[in-house]
Amino acid sequence: MAGGNAIRGSRVGAGPMGEAERGEAAPRVVVAYYCANEHVTTPSFAQEPGMVVPEFWDCPRCGFPAGQDQDNPPAPPKAEPYKTHLAYVKERRSDKEGAVILDEALKSLRDRGLIQ
């Protein structure tokens, strides 16, 4: 007994389709990018009118920025040490401003009877 709506000779995920089924591939341009760790990355980009190739690309091996100049790759980003909340406050306020704010807070606590 044959089913009327069965797809014969193929199944979902059976394999790659040929170029005739997918259509023609767009013309591509391959660009080499170099990072500070001497890794080479070669992504390809579709050649389309108005398409601008990025100046920098992230290296997939180390994560550093990569540029198109092999002799002068971009410098790795500088890792800034972790800052505490107090360090950020000290960047915004001077010691004199901090003393005024502390005095106001202590006065408010004394007025409410929370400290002596």
Rank of each mutant, 00 (worst) to 15 (best):
Gly63Val: 04
Lys90Trp: 10
Ile115Pro: 03
Lys107Pro: 01
Ala32His: 09
Val100Gln: 13
Ala2Lys: 06
Lys83Ile: 02
Asp58Gln: 00
Gly13Pro: 05
Cys59Glu: 03
Asn72Leu: 07
Pro76Asn: 14
Val40Asp: 11
Leu86Phe: 09
Cys35Arg: 02
Val100Tyr: 11
Lys96Cys: 03
Leu106Arg: 01
Ser10His: 07
Phe64Lys: 15
Ser10Phe: 08
Gln68Asp: 14
Arg8Ile: 01
Trp57Thr: 00
Val40Trp: 07
Pro54Tyr: 14
Pro27Met: 02
Tyr88Met: 15
Ala87Lys: 15
Lys96Asp: 11
Phe56Glu: 14
Glu21Phe: 03
Gly63Pro: 07
Lys83Gly: 01
Asp103His: 04
His39Val: 05
Val30Gln: 09
Pro74Val: 00
Arg11Leu: 09
Asp111Cys: 11
Arg61Asn: 15
Pro27Val: 02
Arg61Glu: 15
Pro73Met: 14
Pro77Leu: 08
Leu114Gln: 02
Arg92Pro: 03
Tyr34Gln: 00
Gly63Phe: 06
Val12Ile: 14
Val30Asp: 07
Lys96Val: 10
Ser10Met: 06
Pro77Lys: 01
Pro54Gln: 13
Gly13Gln: 00
Ala105Glu: 04
Pro81Val: 08
Gly23Pro: 03
Pro60His: 01
Gln116Asp: 10
Ser10Pro: 02
Pro27Gln: 06
Arg92Cys: 07
Asp103Ile: 05
Gln68Leu: 15
Ala14Gly: 01
Glu38Asn: 08
Glu80Trp: 12
Glu19Asp: 12
Ala32Asn: 15
Gly67Glu: 11
